[in-house]
Write a protein that binds this DNA or RNA. Structure first.
Lengths: 228, 228
DNA sequence: GGAATAGTGTCTGTCAGACAATATCTC
DNA sequence: GAGATATTGTCTGACAGACACTATTCC
């Protein structure tokens, strides 16, 4: 392999969640140069014998203390502009993870502090490397995928109400949706959600039915985003 | 950089076109091991100072003798399973290109022979490396994108008729579409296509109006694929 | 004129947006 | 009961599928 230009390959993660009406991203504060002290996407180098998805799952587990089963993980894209990392030629494979609100403090094994930050409160140029761009691409991918996949449920706990699911759409899209039309759409699309048979208790108002994520891989017809 | 595991990075291309009612892919016959004599996606190593999109454009130009302007090029995904390349740890960034039918023989600078092969006539396991999988992902991406983008026009020459555009959809999707409903949909969706003001001549039947690709980046509402 | 292809108009069913009405809880 | 939230139902307009019909060319 000495005949081919040597690259380093990293796996970086755009981990999104919905908490308290804010779309938030998991960021770590860098403890070492380059970009020491700056916020960055969690990630790290891919092992020479490690498969790419395995590296992403490993980094996710290391940074969130969470195994993958809940939520959703998919490849987002690969970023490799020369000069994007001052340490050398580093190509990063970025992954998009959608998780329910963990609320519990993020127990990363890394010494560096990690925290959830609302996407709306980040300013361009605030993140290390080209992570602004990667984050923007991840958010846009998530917004688009809510339209034609049942992936919004990945932001919810295993059992959720229609209102919780609607809050996900409203938060990620930054719009308001009519609760009645949304309810009809969600419960009327085959395979989107499945009724659990139980209802919430103790909240204000009429108890809401609980649902689980359904088996449909795609939404037909899609959930339409207002405007556009 | 000696502290990080060394990878080789390649750029591979899924170049699709529509010719004579067949969705076809540009393949090269490998002249050297590994997989000598087998068909493979065109591609090659990324230079140590070369940006990833530049490498894709360069490979496309080398293999097709064509500058990019016509058609469409986007990143498809990155494949890096250990063992996918017997030469060592090679991660490949795959790109999807959609081009009009060049018809002219492919004038690649590579000595290896290159040719267009109908996607439908390839059998699993026929391609080198994991290129079967990459090709399948590319075809699926193209099929999906025809639904919600005006990208079908990337398969057409700069000026085209509604019937030509319909033939693209029918070929890529493998379905038949009602010419009258299709015409209404295409001409009625703002920004999909723009009339040139001239018509075809010399063909059998009533002359058809010519159109150019319109400015809309997305189709709203989408073009619906029959069944599903 | 006949065959072929382009384009328009009509009917109907599906579905989204607007919103009234009802159900069932907490306080 | 008042307030809040969930759920059902109704009306209407947009649009896709089916398909009759007209327009314009080549032969």
């Amino acid at each position: 392999m000495t005949e081919y230009p040597p690259f380093a390959v990293t796996a970086d993660l755009v981990v999104l969640t919905v908490r308290a009406t804010e779309l938030s991203v998991l960021l770590v504060r860098r403890g070492v140069p380059p970009y020491q002290g700056r916020w960055a996407l969690p990630g790290g180098f891919v092992g020479i014998d490690e498969d790419l998805p395995d590296a992403a799952v490993r980094e996710l587990a290391e940074e969130t203390g969470l195994a993958e089963p809940a939520g959703h993980l998919e490849q987002l894209g690969t970023y490799g502009r020369p000069g994007r990392d001052p340490r050398g030629r580093v190509v990063t494979v970025a992954w998009l993870a959608l998780l329910p609100d963990l609320s519990a403090p993020v127990a990363g094994t890394d010494a560096a502090s990690a925290d959830w930050l609302p996407v709306s409160r980040l300013t361009p140029g605030q993140l290390a490397f080209d992570h602004d761009r990667i984050l923007a691409d991840g958010v846009e991918r998530a917004r688009a995928k809510l339209e034609y996949t049942p992936l919004a449920a990945a932001f919810c706990p295993p059992e959720f109400t229609v209102a919780q699911l609607r809050a996900v759409y409203e938060t990620v899209w930054g719009t308001r949706l009519d609760p009645r039309n949304f309810h009809r759409k969600v419960t009327g699309t085959p395979g989107f959600v499945e009724p659990v048979g139980r209802a919430t208790e103790g909240d204000r108002g009429r108890p809401a039915q609980l649902f689980r994520r359904g088996p449909a891989p795609l939404l037909h017809p899609p959930m339409l985003r207002p405007d556009r």
